[in-house]
């Protein structure tokens, strides 16, 4: 009886994953290999034209710009998220829960709404400018909104929890006695961090970086709302390919490249975990 229930549950989950996970990706892959058609979106014959288009300068520039922006976001999130996760993990249990709950609460609001909120904060007549003007720090409003700074700030704010949570999960399990032992043996702060804490936290660092990096490139509305849509990100490109240019193969090919990028990073992550496990040896 129980095994039957189990089979049904597994079957349901598997078909859910198939219908909403595997099938769309297969459709995307299929569309990326077809030819553009102004009437029916895609048609035969099979072609690699869409992938060739990705090598054009406009696309490469957009890709590089997105990568750079995503990288900056990852580094910022790591710089802030790492100490945050470390100190949270060292707190008493009650405090930990409180801090994690506070971290999660903004997620109850849609990220698009929060992006609009940032816009009202940074606007020319926004809260920040008004406060600075009232305090006499500045004489004319600062141009904060529709700048690269606003985009990075928005991305950093939206993605920070995705860095903190995996890092916290990792650092929470960290055996603090290792630090005490190292200190007894005369190691300084830098040495303890570089040779003990950092290597042991690498799986968490990697997981956080992956979770921040790939979605960042797809958050097109942040670039649109906070950056004034002046420069495109990969996410904008995909949206434009599908809607404006009606070039479904190119849009699909761009998505496929993003998925491949994600897959590559996950593979690297698993490799890293396996290597770490063999290095430690069987316990």
């Amino acid at each position: 009886m129980e095994s039957k229930t189990r089979r049904v549950v597994i079957g349901l989950v598997a078909s859910w994953l198939f219908v909403f996970g595997v099938l769309p990706i297969l459709l995307l892959l299929g569309a990326s290999l077809l030819t553009q058609d102004p009437q029916h979106f895609v048609r035969l014959p099979l072609s690699l034209e869409a992938y060739r288009q990705l090598a054009e300068p406009a696309y490469l520039q957009v890709m590089l710009r997105s990568l750079r922006l995503a990288l900056v976001t990852v580094v910022l999130c790591l710089l802030v998220g790492y100490p945050f996760a470390w100190f949270t993990a060292r707190l008493p249990a009650g405090w930990k829960t409180a801090i994690l709950v506070l971290l999660m609460i903004p997620f109850w609001t849609n990220s698009l709404v929060r992006t609009y909120a940032i816009r009202t904060l940074l606007g020319t007549q926004g809260l920040l400018n008004k406060a600075l003007l009232a305090l006499g720090v500045i004489e004319a409003p600062l141009q904060l909104i529709y700048t690269d700074l606003a985009v990075v700030l928005g991305l950093f704010y939206l993605m920070l929890p995705f860095m903190i949570l995996p890092l916290y999960a990792n650092l929470d399990k960290f055996d603090y006695r290792l630090v005490e032992a190292a200190r007894d043996l005369g190691a300084g702060f830098t040495r303890i961090f570089v040779t003990i804490v950092w290597p042991l936290s690498l799986p968490g660092v990697f997981a956080g970086c992956i979770l921040v990096f790939v979605p960042t490139m797809g958050l097109f509305y942040v670039a649109t709302l906070l950056g004034g849509a002046r420069q495109l990100l990969v996410g904008n490109l995909i949206q434009q390919q599908f809607l404006n240019a009606r070039n479904w193969p190119a849009g699909s090919a761009t998505s496929v490249v993003l998925i491949l990028l994600m897959a590559l990073m996950l593979a690297a992550y698993h490799l890293l975990l396996r290597r770490a496990a063999t290095a430690r040896g069987p316990q």
């Binding site: 406009a58 520039q61 849509a229 495109l232 434009q240 404006n244 070039n247």
Partner: peptide
């Protein structure tokens, strides 16, 4: 579309 993207990729 191509030039539109180039315009905003710079």
């Amino acid at each position: 579309q191509k030039y539109w993207e180039l315009l905003r990729a710079g």
